[in-house]
Simulated assay, not measured.
Amino acid sequence: MENLKTNLANSQVGTTGPVLIIGVGLLGASLGMRLSKLGVKVFLRDISPVVTALACDMGAGIQWDENCPSPALVVVATPPDVAARQVISALKEFPESLVTDVASVKAVILTEIKEARADISRYVGSHPMAGRERSGTAFAREDLFESRPWVVVPSEHTSAEAVLAMRTLALDVGSMPLQLDAETHDQSVALVSHVPQLVSSLLAAQLAKAPLESLGLSGQGLRDTTRIASSDPALWAAIIAGNGEHVAKVLRCFADDMQQVLHALEHPGAAFPSPSLVGAVTLAMRQGNLGVARIPGKHGGAPRRYQEVMVKVPDIAGSLARLFQAVGDTGINIEDLELEHSPGAAFGVARLAIEPNAANLLAEKLAVKGWEIVSF
């Protein structure tokens, strides 16, 4: 622990290093890229030499070998089904190092580490709530963790130094650290991450045998709700399996609500429109409105309501850049952005989320610059 304490005392970037990242997929490579840019010495180790070489080429660090100095921090960024074994191995191999993992399940990993009687005082679980629908080293991004929650999950035996180091590391890479116990973490991610992934995939599965004329009508709503359905099946199977109990509870509640709507659809009664059907759908939609309103706003702050300014954007190279420049010239900040565009269409629609008191002004200034305002 002295090596770690010295690094903490002298550090300006949380952990001065060296840092060893085991597993350089999306999260591991992204973390290596960010830490390397901060001037931290990062070493990389992966079961695949090709993957390691790619991560090195992307600036995530340099390949680990037996001549490298002992790391102050080991980050296990492997899939959750092998993460516990890698943590246990790292705690034994590097007896002076802090060890963390970034898997999206925590309780099952913590249990396995305890059963192995490893030095759990040097282990602190963590989970950056960051990712993409595409996994793998090639999709790593240096800014992946920017403004994302990073959950620090200590056990009752984790040292205070280890917790401090992980909270500092999260801040250094641009994340917002928060602390939860393993059980609360797993309950939470079942609701906000794991079940949404399953629901998106189950919805997208209905498209597999859909007629082409139906798919030709696809709009932004379908794209929004199925975006994450292109995620890695093997990785998500391991994640769901590691959090099965909590995922099942959330899915059961979802299925119960779905069953109420389904029953009303299948038994509408003679009247049209059916009062029972209209009531069931209205209730489901209103509950959805309430749920969406509770999702935190930017940077994890309180939910805020913005006004949308919808701008027509020609499907011509550089159009978005010109729009952003035009908005920037007004001095008005874009709080959020969505782009609706169908393949083959001559234009798309940019939905700019703006502070309500600035929406009218932005629309007027963009119209003067020649932009066609769809609505605001």
Rank of each mutant, 00 (worst) to 15 (best):
L362F: 08
P314N: 13
D172K: 11
A280Q: 04
A346G: 13
A130I: 07
R34C: 11
G136Y: 05
A90W: 00
G328L: 05
F139R: 04
R132I: 00
A238N: 09
L73W: 05
Q179T: 15
T52H: 02
S104A: 13
L98E: 07
L366N: 12
V311K: 04
L337K: 05
A118V: 09
Q260S: 10
V309S: 04
V247Y: 00
V13A: 10
R351K: 12
T111F: 03
M310C: 12
L251R: 10
R167N: 08
P149S: 08
G32K: 08
Q179F: 00
I316Y: 02
P211F: 08
R85S: 10
A346F: 08
A55K: 07
V247F: 00
G331T: 10
G242L: 06
C68V: 02
S218T: 15
E161G: 00
C68P: 05
I332Y: 03
L20W: 02
Q220K: 06
A350S: 13
R227N: 03
V50Q: 13
Q12N: 13
K5N: 11
A255L: 13
D329N: 15
L169S: 02
I239R: 02
D101N: 09
E213C: 08
A353I: 00
S231H: 09
I21C: 05
L180M: 14
I332C: 05
